[in-house]
């Protein structure tokens, strides 16, 4: 057989080849790097993460005539629909003084968090061609999902501020906390996206449960009603108030609306949720790094 002429490392079995590789200083392919090394390679690809996120967020509205105008129009129309249903028809205005502002903030922020979870859950599985074509730290995928949702949220924040101003809220010092709240939300969404992506890769059937979970969250997070006014009468009402999504809605409202007070406990809770979810999500995602791309 021709292989004889061409030669091979002798028949000693796997260990001999492994020794040869070690002697020649070759690196093993596809093994999971240690956590510090992983963070370092991820940092080296930060431009990749940024370009991927901005491009995704931009391309979303590129396939129609009005193009990027939709990044402002979509949230506007959505706010109008929610106001019609919950403000006028169902009237869940109890406990709020500026319901249009309250509702707009709730809807926009919740939408961004929910979108991160949904898109995050398929961050690896729907980019499988990229995973199988290019070698990069896979955490870029869920992170870019969260980042691009945050970038999509920015024009909506502009709309939100205009609505809030139109409803008569003054600009106060607390508005300076707006970027802080957004960073906390970004960290939290990124953590959720990484966990969801990891879980769906391991058991893809769970993808079908994500919309269910999001619907549940929508109704228990006080998106269009004040938790304090409606659930406060139950003993376990505090569970609803301190679950992360509700916390972030309250934070945003306390920044922009006068009748919601800035509460240090809430801010600390928000910070804790963000840091814990992000770190747990990162480690959970990293722990399966070498397995992505198998299915």
């Amino acid at each position: 057989m021709t292989s004889a002429e061409r030669g091979g490392t002798a028949a000693g079995g796997p260990s001999e080849l492994a020794q040869l590789a070690a002697r020649s200083g070759l690196k093993k392919v596809g093994s999971r790097p240690g956590l510090p090394e992983y963070v370092r390679t991820l940092w080296a690809r930060r431009h990749f993460l940024w370009v991927l996120s901005t491009s995704r967020s931009y391309s979303r509205n590129q396939n129609n005539y009005l193009g990027q105008l939709w990044s402002v129009l979509s949230p506007l129309t959505l706010a109008a629909v929610y106001y019609l249903v919950f403000g006028l028809l169902l009237d869940t205005r109890a406990g709020t003084t500026n319901y249009p502002g309250f509702l707009t903030i709730g809807v926009f922020i919740f939408m961004a968090i929910a979108a991160s979870m949904t898109a995050g859950s398929t961050a690896v599985t729907s980019n499988i061609t990229m995973v199988r074509a290019l070698d990069f730290p896979r955490a870029v995928l869920p992170l870019s999902v969260a980042l691009s949702e945050m970038l999509t949220l920015l024009p909506a924040i502009g709309v939100m501020i205009v609505i809030v101003l139109l409803t008569g809220e003054p600009i106060t010092v607390t508005w300076l906390l707006l970027p802080v709240a957004l960073v906390l939300i970004l960290l939290f969404s990124a953590g959720c996206a990484m966990i969801a992506a990891r879980v769906v890769v391991a058991a893809r059937d769970l993808r079908n449960l994500i919309p269910v979970a999001i619907r549940l969250l929508r109704y228990v997070s006080g998106v269009f009603f004040s938790i304090e006014a409606y659930a406060g009468r139950f003993e376990w009402g505090f569970v609803l108030e301190y679950q992360p999504v509700a916390v972030y809605l309250t934070l945003m409202r306390s920044v922009l609306l006068q009748d919601v007070a800035v509460d240090p406990t809430m801010w600390l809770t928000g910070l804790a949720w963000a840091v814990v979810l992000f770190l747990v999500g990162f480690v959970v995602f990293w722990s399966a790094e070498e397995k992505y791309g198998r299915d």
Binding site: P14, A18, A21, A22, S24, G25, L26, K27, K28, V29, G30, V131, R132, A133, L134, D135, E290, K291, G293, R294
Partner: peptide, 15 residues
Amino acid sequence: IAGLMPTSSGAVYVA
């Protein structure tokens, strides 16, 4: 070989 699909056993070494 490119490390894009995990091996179920054995190993690939690349310089």
